[in-house]
Simulated assay, not measured.
Amino acid sequence: MNTIVKDIYVKSCVFSDVIEMHAYLSDPLKIKDKSNIEGLGFFSDNYLDEFYAIKAANQQMNTTMFRQITISISPVGNTCTDKEYMKIGKEIAEYYYKKGYQIIWYLHKDTPRHHLHLLLNSVNFRTGKIFKQSLKGLNRFKVHCNHILHEHNLEQIQMSVEDMLDITPHELSEGFEIFEIFDEVIADNATVFEELFDEKNTSDDEYYSAYDLTNLGMTTCPSTVYYTSATYEETIIPEPKSTLQEGNTMDYTIEKKEVPALKTSSLPSEVLENTCLVIDASKNVNFTVPSNCDEDKLKDIINSVEPIPEHDRATNAKIGIASIAELQKRGIDLPVYVDTSTNINIEFDDVMSSDIFDTTFTEK
């Protein structure tokens, strides 16, 4: 299993994209602890304010906002603690910081294969120029990373520089799965299985004893998402005119050209009329118990209820953020609330025969 690095290009010309990106990368369900976010090139922990200040001071508010690099270190021989991951993240991030770029790194722990994300301010705080990097520059970054991985006795980057770079112009409206490089990790896992299968055909079962196949990659769990209101009238949203494709900030940019805008489908009318969209992914457990139920037994019943697993909550959070981006793409600025609560509802079977309704009303 290999160490995978991906520089993913996103068309982002408004600062709200930086805010969305940071919100996703710093999601508490992913980082687990605030200590798993650090930055270089900042005077305080107000990373977004200082990102903005550098852009505003250099009058670069309508250009590419950031670069995002995902680093998934091979689990082979990897026993890194959170502090070691963050130390590696800092050592890797210093490559761009020394060149004059603010950079934040995040440790994500919501998948079996823990991984790092680097968020780079596209404006150089020394020169005020926009970030550009050639293939040679990316190769120097690869060499820099490999020196660090070698010092920590970890698998080095074997993939080519071309494979490390994704120059397809992505948009945040696509969702955030592209930054988690699920496809690359799955492909890497498939290669491992393929090699094991090929080797199995020419050797005995002892070959497998050296491999741990219990933790081979990232997984996501499906969740049910639905609007809180089941009935709605169709509302037709006018299709926007074609938009101008932003050029990549790599040296070998693609010529700008007109591309047809995506067609937008109908949205429920309550989404357009109300002030928010609610995605209900909650878990509801209903109990009916006799009113004379033993108190300790009732507590045991309540405590036996398993809350929604963290990986499900993380998936639902991503769906919420992706929904915001999708709505904004359609010209609708609405907050999205994702309910991932675990609710326990208790009903006493003889409540109607109790004297609860006969009690005297008090303010308390």
Score class of each variant (00 low, 15 high):
29 L>A: 06
281 A>H: 06
295 E>W: 14
207 Y>T: 12
60 Q>V: 06
317 A>Q: 00
204 D>M: 14
326 E>H: 12
47 Y>Q: 06
328 Q>W: 10
335 P>S: 01
242 S>H: 11
16 S>H: 12
300 D>P: 02
133 Q>D: 15
84 E>Q: 10
16 S>K: 12
286 N>C: 08
86 M>Y: 05
96 Y>G: 01
283 K>R: 06
116 L>W: 00
274 N>T: 10
314 A>P: 01
258 E>Q: 12
42 F>W: 03
329 K>L: 11
90 K>T: 03
276 C>D: 11
43 F>C: 08
210 A>D: 15
229 S>D: 15
240 P>S: 07
264 T>R: 07
286 N>V: 07
198 D>P: 11
290 P>Q: 09
206 E>G: 09
11 K>P: 01
311 H>G: 06
153 N>I: 02
50 E>Y: 03
89 G>I: 00
186 I>V: 15
341 S>A: 08
22 H>D: 03
144 H>R: 14
8 I>D: 10
77 G>V: 08
252 Y>P: 03
169 P>N: 08
206 E>H: 13
237 I>N: 02
248 N>F: 05
95 Y>Q: 04
256 K>Y: 14
186 I>N: 13
153 N>Y: 05
212 D>S: 11
28 P>Q: 09
286 N>K: 10
127 T>G: 06
13 C>K: 15
211 Y>F: 09
280 D>A: 02
240 P>L: 08
69 I>C: 03
287 F>Y: 04
149 L>E: 03
268 P>C: 04
231 T>I: 11
265 S>R: 10
328 Q>N: 14
146 N>S: 00
195 E>I: 10
6 K>P: 13
119 L>C: 00
204 D>A: 15
351 V>L: 10
72 S>N: 11
354 S>W: 00
360 T>N: 09
97 Y>M: 09
104 I>R: 04
81 T>Y: 07
310 E>W: 05
182 F>A: 08
96 Y>R: 06
87 K>N: 13
154 L>W: 01
90 K>W: 02
101 Y>F: 01
237 I>A: 04
344 I>C: 11
196 L>V: 09
294 D>A: 02
24 Y>E: 05
295 E>H: 14
148 I>P: 14
19 I>E: 09
242 S>E: 11
57 A>T: 10
142 K>C: 08
176 F>G: 01
192 V>I: 11
297 K>D: 06
317 A>K: 00
140 R>S: 13
